[in-house]
Design a binder for these strands. Structure first.
Length: 260
DNA sequence: AGTACCACCTGACGGC
DNA sequence: TGCCGTCAGGTGGTAC
């Protein structure tokens, strides 16, 4: 489920495979994923161009071309990228295929189609139009703590709200709260300054660790919750029982002993 | 502003 | 075997 660390991993993957290669053609085959631009126009925009650089903001990946607009990718829950040689089989659920002049291809794959492919004129404008908050790994500590001070709801909702800080989804919200020892249902107005500070630290630490492990939960440190998302599982810190609840209509896992 | 719920979308899985 | 409800979780919309 691509959240910030996963999208960052995809960004690096695209960087290492697909920059500075002539695009022979693009094949956009799914109008339900391509938003705000026709399939034809997307294809003609990419044809003959090269990917020049990439930028990530929250869960969005921007790819600049050597001329013209930016390619914007969002991966929803099931999106990914695959770079492969033309004679290898194309992945199932490929929604956009890019053919490079070197005989390799880049596929935007998205089984469930929750996600989007679009074009944008510039990144700042796109972020503003979407109402996205600062990226969770770039936000200043004061801005983050002020955001928590200003809100009224549950802390987990605030962490997941892309208009507050961008990039945190369901799994990493739970992990950050677990590492900061804060209950997901805790109201913002009841957080202490110390807890806000600890949340900021945990957010940065968790996201960086996850990036280092390319989002592979099974490789996370032993004290992480992400690979034990199951009601009744053993808490990796205290050995108690993990509880499952619902916040924002999302399944939420936490340790009632460790998190207060 | 916050909450609650539905819709979008597909596949895996468990119950009957 | 096979049908069916439920769940997975990112986002957007609507009603309260």
């Amino acid at each position: 489920m691509p959240e910030l660390p996963d999208v960052e991993t995809l960004r690096r993957y695209l960087d290492s495979t697909s920059l500075h290669r002539r695009i022979q053609s693009a094949d956009a085959r799914d109008a339900r994923v391509v938003k705000g631009v026709s399939l034809k126009r997307l294809e003609s925009t990419l044809r003959g161009r090269e990917f020049e650089s990439t930028h990530r903001h929250g869960k969005f990946l921007f790819v600049t071309l050597d001329r013209g607009p930016l390619l914007v990718l969002h991966f929803g829950m099931t999106g990914e990228l695959a770079y492969f040689k033309h004679d290898q089989g194309e992945p199932a659920h490929t929604r956009l295929r890019i053919r490079f002049a070197n005989g390799y291809r880049l596929a935007y794959v998205n089984r469930r189609r929750l996600g989007r492919v679009s074009l944008a004129e510039n990144i700042e404008e796109f972020i503003r139009d979407e109402g996205l908050g600062p990226d969770a790994l770039s936000v200043e500590r004061d801005a983050f703590e002020d955001m928590l001070k200003g809100g009224r709801g549950k802390i987990k909702s605030a962490l997941m709200n892309q208009n507050g800080v961008a990039g945190i989804g369901n799994v990493y919200a739970d992990e950050i709260l677990f590492q900061a020892s804060v209950r997901p249902g805790k109201r913002l107005e009841k957080l202490t300054g110390k807890a806000r500070r600890e949340l900021f630290r945990a957010m940065r630490r968790v996201l960086k660790v996850a990036i280092r492990h390319r989002g592979h939960r099974e490789e996370f440190p032993k004290t992480y919750l992400s690979d034990h998302r199951e009601a009744g599982a053993e808490c990796p810190k205290c050995g108690g029982r993990i509880r499952k609840g619902t916040i924002n209509g999302r399944s939420t896992y936490y340790c009632p002993q460790c998190q207060t």
